[in-house]
Structure formats: C-alpha cells, structure tokens
Design a binder for these strands. Structure first.
Lengths: 113, 113
DNA sequence: AGTATAAATCGATGATTGTCAATATGAAAA
DNA sequence: TTTTCATATTGACAATCATCGATTTATACT
C-alpha cells in the first residue's frame, strides 16, 4: 500500500481571470473606491442631471477636487457631462453602472478575451 | 417682465450618500481594485475551496504578497480561511460578494443609517 | 528535542492618489 | 473688446499601497 499523498490538496485545474480583464475591472473598482466619488455618484444618480455648480457645496470639496473626480468617473464612462453655456451638466450612465454590477459574477468572467 | 433667473439650474433637494456609508463602500471597492486580488478571488470563487499553496504559482506572486492579499480579502469578509494542519484553505463568501453587487444600487443607499 | 515547511509579519522601496492653491481656458455678458 | 465667472489644468505634498527579501511563528514529522 503506497503512502498517502502528503500534498495539501488534490491536483486541480483552475481557471483564473485573465490579466487584461482583471486590470480593466480593477480600474473600474478603483474609480468607485473613494468616498467623495461615491457620494458624488450617488448625487448624480439621484437626479436626472446635475450642474457642476451644485456639487461642491453638498460634498464639501474644492472646485478643482470636484473637477478631478468628475473627470475620473467620466473617463470610466460612469457619468456623462454635457457643456451648455458656461455650465457642465452631469448625468449617470445607468447601463454602465449596471455592467459593473454584473462584472461581479466573477466565475463568469473567467478566461474571457 | 422680470429678468430670467441666471442660475445654472433650478433649486433642488438632493439626497447624498452619507459619509459613513460612502467610506464603508469605498473600502469594499478598494479591496476589489487590484488585479492580483481580483484574479485571486476569481480563482477561489471557481472552486469549492483552494489551498494557499496553490495560489502562488497561477498568480505569479511571492508568498508574502499572496498572504497580504488574502488577508485584505478576508478582512473584508469576501473570503474565509480555515487552517487545517499546516495549510490554510480558502473559500469565497458568495453572499458577501453578492451584497457588494447590490450596494451598487446607489440610489437606494442614499441617507441610510 | 530537532528538523522541515507553510503561512504571517516586518522593513524598505517605488508608485499611485486625494487634496488644494494658483493659474489657465473658454464662454457669456457688458 | 473687456470683464466676469464656471470649469479645467498644473504643481506640490502627504498619505496609502503593492511588492518582495528577510525573519518569525506555528504545525507536523522523525
């Protein structure tokens, strides 16, 4: 009778999320990994559209900081800005936000691409 | 006839996610905002349980780095580790992961707590 | 007890990030 | 064309973080 396998666990073949997919997803989560940005997003999601000038006061951040955060969310496609005159109006891309949700089905993201 | 309101937009009362909720959620997203951690999580989610010793090779990271990442995911409650002998076996807390998903219903997170 | 080994912790380093003051850009109003 | 003002960009700084080599802790085997 052979000695039992001392290995910690049986051999198994696991599928790992690809580097590319992981990096892409991580960038999205990083965009959501800031309290100010989440509050900003919640503020925009709650309305049909919100003017930039109405963001600074409820968030308690300076104008450059707000601009910084809106840019990050916009670059990720989570919000969309439209300039009308001197003001920029922001609205949420709800489909895009929902797609981040479904990205959390991690077992279905495996080995794609 | 009075001059039209020069304001950028009509007055509105918006609900913003609370600081506390935002910080809590941001911590969770920060945990997911790293490619190595996402691949690690996908690897664990794909199996019933995975031994630590089977994580280093597919992820191409050193043992201290893997330990660092499992700790972060475990502290967030996304994975659960169980020591059996010399080895630690990890499994995903799927309910916890699903709760992060539902946290993305940002409009329902408003003003809670 | 002594050895082997799996995982955790420590210490250091290079990189990224949130923030704001100062400045620039761009569009409307006078 | 000047002036005004909403937004964007720049530069700087403190803080956080991913990573790994070295070491420690803890468990099992002899």
């Amino acid at each position: 009778m052979p000695t039992p396998d001392p290995a910690c666990c049986p051999a198994f073949s696991t599928h790992v999320m690809s580097e590319a997919t992981a990096t892409e997803l991580a960038d999205l989560f990083a965009g959501l990994a800031d309290p100010t940005r989440l509050r900003l997003l919640s503020l925009i999601v709650a309305e049909e559209e919100v003017c930039s000038c109405n963001l600074e006061e409820p968030l308690g951040r300076s104008q450059p900081t707000i601009s910084h955060h809106t840019r990050i969310l916009a670059d990720l496609g989570l919000i969309i800005g439209e300039r009308r005159g001197r003001w920029v109006y922001w609205r949420a891309d709800r489909a895009r936000i929902a797609s981040v949700q479904s990205a959390l089905q991690l077992d279905e993201q495996v080995n794609q691409r």
